[in-house]
Design a protein around this nucleic acid. Structure first.
Lengths: 153, 153
DNA sequence: TTACCTGCAAACAGTTTGCAGGCCG
DNA sequence: CGGCCTGCAAACTGTTTGCAGGTAA
């Protein structure tokens, strides 16, 4: 994928917006630090590099990134939203460990195809989807041992 | 599935809780009116039958239903949570029209199986999942006609 | 009688917005 | 220079919680 910063400044230019240092910093940090950042996490990192940046700007810039098609808002189970960089054509879904919170990106083209067929079968034209698989990762499973009958967390 | 009210009062009894008229009303309305209610929608309906009920009780009762395994909290794209009755063994996923907001329940056992395999392949033991398909329903598609190139809503 | 419950309102958390100044283009 | 941007703080929205009185068991 092309440099996201480049795409971003193109988008900025095309839409008569301004390419400010704050936006550049936020976008850079967002794409460097990788995956599934919440606004607050992003804000914290950004703050360390420029303590004068306000949260509102982070919120506004993330929204801008979504508009530009460079980021996607995600809602796992939490009260806060998370954002993920859109890696061009590499679509994927998420696998989350309910014990340790680890998230892993997954992708299965057969499932993708069946999703499309399922939508068609119901008269829908699919434009996108979200799939999140919740389970227990290897580590947590062996760590939690034989305590299987638990119901209430 | 058994009467949800019955299951609920069993749960109440087993856990030393109280079976109050407010709870009974909320649970009854929740299961009668069916699908994907938000707390506010549920509150509005309940209010019409008993104007003295407070929102807090609705929130608390929905949480209780989740604990009892009778309801499930859903997050589509909105700012508010929705709740759906758990119909025992009839698991399903959701198909949502991005134009009119219509939601439809769907289920594909092949997809379900592949999800399990995908999780296993990554060392996870799957416990649950969420899948939401976004698209355009037949009605909206024909209604919106040939305006396909639109980018910004 | 004794917990548990309820409605109310205040408290909260996450997010948005109005404003006065600042800066890109 | 003009319009977009920014930081700040206040406003908002959805949800939670403390409290004093009420009620199921």
């Amino acid at each position: 994928m092309q440099d996201p910063l480049r795409i971003f400044s193109d988008y900025i230019a095309e839409n008569g917006l301004k390419n400010t240092p704050q936006r550049r910093l936020i976008v850079e940090v967002f794409f460097k630090s990788g995956k599934h950042l919440s606004t607050e996490e992003l804000y914290n990192v950004v703050c360390k590099k420029d303590g004068s940046i306000g949260q509102a700007t982070v919120y506004r810039t993330l929204k801008l990134l979504c508009d530009a098609g460079l980021a996607k808002e995600l809602h796992f189970g939490e009260s806060t939203a998370r954002y993920e960089p859109i890696e061009d054509d590499s679509h994927h879904d998420h696998l989350i460990c309910t014990a340790c919170g680890k998230t892993q990106e997954v992708m299965d083209s057969t499932i993708e195809r069946l999703q499309n067929e399922l939508a068609e079968k119901n008269g829908f034209t699919l434009t996108s989807h979200r799939m999140v698989l919740y389970g227990m990762c290897e580590g947590c499973r062996s760590r939690s041992g034989q305590a299987e009958g638990r119901q209430k967390p």
